[in-house]
Lab assay of single mutants.
Amino acid sequence: SHFELRVGTITLHFDNISEELAEELEKLAKNGVHADEIRRWWEEWLK
């Protein structure tokens, strides 16, 4: 499923992401983690 995450002024787009993972990314964003860090985390997870 597709997921969009708003982090400050940036909107990150994720394809084929589980609800659980989407929730984890939302938690990171709410805790003030920068969009670049979240994207890096996601790319690492995909490997």
Rank of each mutant, 00 (worst) to 15 (best):
A29G: 04
E23Q: 15
E26N: 11
L25I: 07
F3H: 05
E4K: 01
D15R: 04
G8Q: 02
I10D: 10
L21T: 11
H13E: 06
G8R: 01
N16P: 04
E19A: 13
E4V: 03
K47G: 10
F3D: 02
H13R: 06
E43Y: 09
G32S: 06
L46M: 14
E37C: 07
N31V: 10
E44W: 09
E26M: 14
V7A: 03
F14C: 04
I17E: 01
R6A: 15
F3Y: 05
H13D: 02
G8V: 03
E26C: 07
D15A: 06
E4M: 01
E26T: 15
T9N: 15
H34L: 12
K30F: 08
W45L: 08
G32F: 06
W41M: 12
W41D: 02
F3M: 05
F14H: 00
F3T: 02
N31E: 12
A29K: 07
E43A: 08
E43S: 07
H34R: 11
E20A: 12
V7Y: 03
I17N: 01
N16M: 06
W41C: 06
F3N: 02
H13W: 09
H13F: 10
A29E: 03
L12F: 06
E19M: 13
H34M: 11
V33S: 12
L46G: 13
E37Q: 11
W42Y: 15
N16A: 05
S1T: 10
D15Q: 07
L21V: 13
S1N: 15
H2C: 08
L5D: 02
T9K: 07
E26D: 11
H34I: 10
A22Q: 15
F14G: 01
I17G: 01
E20Q: 14
F14M: 03
L46I: 10
K30Y: 08
L5C: 03
E44P: 00
V7L: 07
G32L: 08
A35H: 06
D15M: 08
E19S: 13
K47E: 10
I10Y: 01
N16C: 04
E4S: 00
W41E: 04
K30G: 08
S18C: 04
D36F: 04
V7M: 06
L5I: 14
E24D: 09
D15E: 10
G32W: 04
E44G: 05
W45V: 10
T9W: 02
E23R: 15
F3E: 03
I38Y: 02
W41A: 12
A35G: 06
D36S: 10
D36Y: 02
A35K: 03
A29Q: 04
H34P: 14
S18E: 04
D15F: 12
L25T: 00
E43N: 10
L12T: 00
L28H: 09
N16Y: 10
D15C: 09
V7C: 04
L28F: 14
T11G: 01
L28M: 15
D36N: 10
L21E: 09
E19L: 14
N31P: 06
E19K: 15
I38G: 01
I38Q: 01
S18K: 03
S1V: 11
R40E: 11
L5W: 01
H13M: 08
V7D: 03
I10Q: 07
K47H: 15
G8F: 05
N16Q: 06
G8A: 02
E43F: 09
H34N: 13
N31K: 12
N31M: 12
V7E: 01
E43V: 08
T11C: 05
W41K: 13
T11F: 06
F14P: 00
R40Q: 11
T11P: 00
W42M: 11
H13Q: 08
N16E: 05
G32T: 06
I38C: 03
S18Q: 04
I10T: 12
V33G: 08
K47D: 07
E4H: 05
I38L: 07
A35Q: 06
L25F: 08
G32C: 06
A29H: 03
G32H: 08
V33N: 10
A22G: 06
E4D: 03
W45M: 10
E43I: 08
V33Y: 15
I38V: 07
G32Q: 05
K47T: 11
G8P: 00
I17T: 03
L25R: 00
A29D: 02
E37P: 03
H2D: 14
L28S: 02
L5T: 03
E43M: 09
E26A: 12
L5P: 02
L28P: 00
I10V: 13
S18G: 08
A29F: 04
E20V: 08
E43Q: 11
A35F: 06
W45I: 09
F14Y: 02
W41Y: 14
T9M: 09
V33D: 05
V7Q: 01
K27S: 11
S18P: 09
N31G: 11
E20I: 11
E24F: 13
E19N: 13
G8L: 05
F3I: 06
L25Q: 00
R40V: 05
V33K: 13
L46R: 07
L25K: 00
H2M: 03
H13I: 13
L21D: 06
V33I: 12
I38K: 01
E23C: 03
E37F: 07
H13T: 10
E26W: 07
N16V: 05
R6G: 09
K30Q: 13
V7P: 00
V7G: 00
I10G: 05
A22F: 14
K30D: 10
R40M: 13
L21C: 04
G32M: 09
E37A: 12
K27R: 11
H13K: 06
V33Q: 12
S18A: 06
E20W: 08
A29L: 05
T11E: 04
R40D: 09
V33F: 12
K27I: 09
E24A: 11
R6Q: 15
E37K: 07
E20M: 07
H34S: 15
W45P: 00
W41I: 14
L5K: 03
E23L: 14
D36P: 06
E20N: 08
I10L: 06
E44I: 07
I38F: 07
L5R: 00
F14S: 01
L46P: 05
L5A: 02
E19G: 11
L46D: 07
H2Q: 05
E37I: 09
T9Q: 12
E19F: 12
K47L: 08
L28T: 02
L28I: 06
L12H: 01
L25C: 02
E43P: 02
V33P: 04
R39S: 11
H13Y: 12
W45Y: 15
L5F: 01
R40W: 10
W45S: 09
G8W: 03
R39T: 13
L12V: 04
R6T: 15
